[in-house]
Structure formats: structure tokens, C-alpha cells
């Protein structure tokens, strides 16, 4: 697994205060109570800071799961391999 991918999982686990053994596929907005619109606002700041990227407006609505975020980061050159 790619280092950056792990970092994304770790980051999301810490950000949403999930169990450390949460799998990447379980990190989906619908399944995480804390992932509300307020958290979304902070999450975007967090992702942009952590990965040194900037999201465009039409990407933001789609950042709703580990895999979607991974894809968006991949498009910005943050290498993801699964």
C-alpha cells in the first residue's frame, strides 16, 4: 500500500476519532455520525494542509469517502496505489 494512502487513512481516523482498526472502505460519510457539514468544512482545510493541494469547487461535493478523497488526491498528483 502506498505511503500516502496510509497517511490519508490515518488522517481520517484521527480527524473523525475512529477506532484505529477501521478499514479504509468503512470510511464513508454515511457511516460516520461526526461527518456533518461542519466537519466537512474543517476536513477540507485539513486535507489541503496535509497534502498541499487545493480543491476546486466541483470536487468538494464529492469528497465523501476515503476512496473518493483518494481519487481526488490522485488527480492532483498525490500518488495512490491500491
Amino acid at each position: 500500500m502506498n505511503v500516502e494512502t496510509d497517511r490519508l487513512r490515518d488522517m481520517l481516523i484521527e480527524f473523525f476519532e475512529l477506532r484505529p482498526d477501521t478499514t479504509a472502505s468503512d470510511i464513508v460519510q454515511d457511516r460516520i455520525a461526526k461527518w456533518d457539514s461542519l466537519a466537512m468544512v474543517q476536513l477540507i482545510v485539513e486535507l489541503q494542509t496535509a497534502f498541499g493541494v487545493e480543491f476546486e469547487v466541483d470536487e468538494i461535493d464529492r469528497l465523501t469517502s476515503y476512496s473518493q478523497i483518494g481519487e481526488a488526491l490522485g488527480r492532483k498528483g498525490v500518488k495512490i496505489s491500491r
Binding site: 484521527e14 480527524f15 474543517q42 482545510v45 485539513e46
Partner: peptide
């Protein structure tokens, strides 16, 4: 409060 603040 340092150079790269994050919410965490």
C-alpha cells in the same frame, strides 16, 4: 499555533 496549523 506553529507554521502549519491543522484542526487536529
Amino acid at each position: 499555533l506553529g507554521e502549519t496549523p491543522t484542526w487536529v
